[in-house]
């Protein structure tokens, strides 16, 4: 019997003793990355929590190549590295741009759009912790409605979350997917599929942050799973011109199978101040998202 790849291959690349907060989702995602690519990956990391987690010179908590780049340029640098590898004939190394939601949805949007349009051969992963967690929980355009941040302290954010996966679908790239830290096997199979496709691949990864979302560190995986089970975060892949729902989200096409969004909201301190009206409008947002997914299946 051969040993399963996910637990055994994920052992060596992420080294213990990194600078992440307890319960951080970022090293969990890196373990899944290393289960697919081993140390044959080049991570391009802009300013974010991840550049802190990797650690200070002369140490590095990842047994893989890491390039630290300015905030807006993750996709641009990854394009250059991918092209250089192709010119040199190196085909067994995967280039991965690894950016947070601030470095993707706000500051890195222009270079991301350019790289998608030129269709460079790399994987762009946006780990979505829904605010600027590294600098002290400021609101980003990916923060959901009603959420407390230090820049929306009283009423919470009033605007809707920016859906970057839909923006990338509109670019017409070969592969777009959403994944969640609560379903690592699903994330693994999406990475395996993405690694076999040539061209620009985009994965949006839902990553609950215990510090910024105000919940106990032990519930990181539980919160991520609740986001999927309530239908707030829909797991799908987009290729061949239509959306394919992933395993955990497939039964939720039927609205009666979805849990009410209150179960997800009440676990987190950042939604402490939402009232009945706001909960109702968040539920409506869920229904609208599912209508959009149904139209494009």
């Amino acid at each position: 019997m051969s040993k399963p790849a996910l637990p055994y291959k994920a052992r060596d690349v992420v080294l213990p003793g990194d600078a992440a907060c307890p319960g951080c989702p970022i090293p969990i995602a890196w373990k899944v990355l290393s289960a697919v690519f081993g140390d044959k990956m080049i991570l391009v990391i802009p300013a974010s929590c991840s550049s802190v987690v990797v650690g200070m010179y002369p140490g590095n908590s990842l047994k893989a190549s890491v390039i630290h780049v300015p905030f807006a340029s993750a996709a641009a640098v990854a394009s250059g590295v991918a092209e250089a590898l192709e010119k040199r004939g190196v085909s067994d190394v995967q280039v991965i741009a690894w950016a947070g939601d601030g470095g993707t949805a706000d500051i890195g949007m222009a270079s991301l759009s350019g790289a998608a349009e030129r269709n460079h051969n790399f994987i762009y992963i946006m780990y979505d912790n829904e605010a600027y967690m590294n600098t002290g929980i400021q609101r980003s355009s990916s923060t959901p409605r009603g959420a407390w941040t230090t820049t929306t302290p009283i009423l919470g954010k009033g605007e809707e979350k920016k859906d970057v996966a839909r923006i990338m679908i509109a670019h017409g790239v070969p592969y777009v997917a959403t994944a969640s830290i609560g379903y690592v096997h699903d994330f693994y199979s999406k990475l395996v599929r993405a690694s076999k496709i040539k061209g620009f691949k985009f994965i949006s990864l839902h990553a609950p942050c215990p510090v910024g979302w105000r919940f106990d560190p032990r519930y990181t995986v539980r919160v991520a799973r609740l986001a999927v089970e309530t239908g707030l975060w829909i797991l799908y892949e987009y290729y061949d011109g239509r959306i394919h729902l992933s395993g955990p989200s497939r039964p939720l096409l039927d609205p009666s199978k979805r849990k009410p969004v209150e179960e997800y909201l009440k676990l987190q301190g950042r939604f402490k101040n939402v009232d009945e009206k706001m909960v109702k409008s968040i539920q409506e947002y869920v229904e609208n998202n599912w209508e959009w997914v149904k139209r494009h299946m």
Binding site: P16, G17, D18, A19, N60, S61, L62, K63
Partner: peptide, 12 residues
């Protein structure tokens, strides 16, 4: 160049 090492943040 930074080298991979265990415990970049000390004994956590």
């Amino acid at each position: 160049l930074a080298r991979p090492s265990i415990g970049v943040a000390g004994k956590t």
